[in-house]
Design a binder for these strands. Structure first.
Lengths: 192, 192
DNA sequence: GGCAATCCATACTCTTCCGTATGGTTTCTG
DNA sequence: CAGAAACCATACGGAAGAGTATGGATTGCC
């Protein structure tokens, strides 16, 4: 039995630290990102950390950049391959709704918008996603101005939902009820 | 010239500390709530604080309770006096949109959902507001299930908007554009 | 196998912040 | 006006966490 459940790599790389940092952020938020805590969790001491990174901020920045670039090809990459623009938005909604796992980091970062390091990252990511939504709404038939506002509304609903049902544990909505909610969203937000 | 701009009250009460705490939370978040910092800001030292409160947690709890009860009579109290149920929702949207000042504490608390003390408060407040929205939608003509989902969607959009345009500084939407967005929300979310 | 680069442990320092102890000062009250 | 209660300052102790210094261990490479 080992302390952590990791398969006991004898030596660590910078990537290992970054991934562990993202994992910890998803679980306990950016505020909980302490180097000694991370080191314990990885089965080493601070001595290791300060070889790979110059400071704690450096680790956070590296982890954020890694997360940003991963999300770029993964989250948006898939969806862009749905040919029919009319099918694209409902499909997007349903997919996002049913894999809330990758959104944990995003939810954690939403709560860390006071840390100056995360603001630019979140600004870029949110901006790109909103632009994606905007063009999707235009392709679905909305005029430019309406498409933009609908994208704002949609993305705000997404962000708010993360906060309310993910972080906060609001009246724990169950599975069927949740599906009904998603379909209600689709019916309300996507033009027929 | 004084250190802070406060009118130099010679002695302080518990209420003074609670109000100062809320102010600080609105400005810099819950994490910045430190007793020595607050004391400096009030022109006294820790000695004063620990006469009024047993601990830092006690201050936070007191401040949260004060905020919760204030919001209860202020935010919801006014709106309930709008007679026509059909006019009520659009009016609510427009009012909320144009006094974002009282929402700063709420936005700050959204980012503090990892602190166990704020979770129950936010759960209660959000729950009450959602119930209010749900009955408003029913009075506007929606059947029960749809009213509930529409309330969820609306409130999520509200919360998300706070995060995106308040905390994060997303493409600084200007005044006219913002009004157009609010009207778009009304047209999209409120049944004709 | 031995040398150099890489990786890590140990043992510090420094800062920040919570909380306590204790005595002083102001204000209220009889 | 005197004593008590309310309020505050100063000076500690202690925990937590960032960063540094330095030497030991491990690995790749010739």
């Amino acid at each position: 039995m080992n302390v952590s459940s990791k398969p006991e790599r004898t030596r660590l790389s910078a990537e290992d630290w970054e991934l562990a940092a993202l994992h910890l952020i998803a679980e306990q938020g950016v505020g909980a990102l302490a180097v000694e805590a991370l080191a314990r969790q990885l089965g080493v001491t601070k001595g290791s950390f300060y070889w790979h990174f110059r400071t704690r901020e450096a680790l956070l920045n590296a982890a954020l950049e890694r997360w940003e670039q991963y999300g770029e090809r993964e989250v948006l990459g898939q969806i862009e391959q749905i040919a029919d623009p009319r099918k694209r938005l409902p499909e997007l909604f349903r997919r996002v709704a049913h894999e809330l796992q990758p959104h944990r980091v995003y939810a954690a970062l939403l709560k860390a918008l006071d840390h100056p390091q995360v603001v630019p990252v979140m600004a870029r990511v949110s901006q790109r996603r909103m632009e994606f939504l905007t063009t999707a709404y235009r392709e679905a038939g909305l005029p430019a101005q309406q498409a933009l506002n609908r994208a704002r509304l949609t993305y705000a609903a997404y962000v708010g939902f993360l906060q309310l049902n993910f972080t906060l544990g609001l009246p724990r909505i169950n599975h069927e009820e949740f599906d009904a909610y998603v379909e209600h969203m689709i019916a309300t937000l996507i033009p027929a």
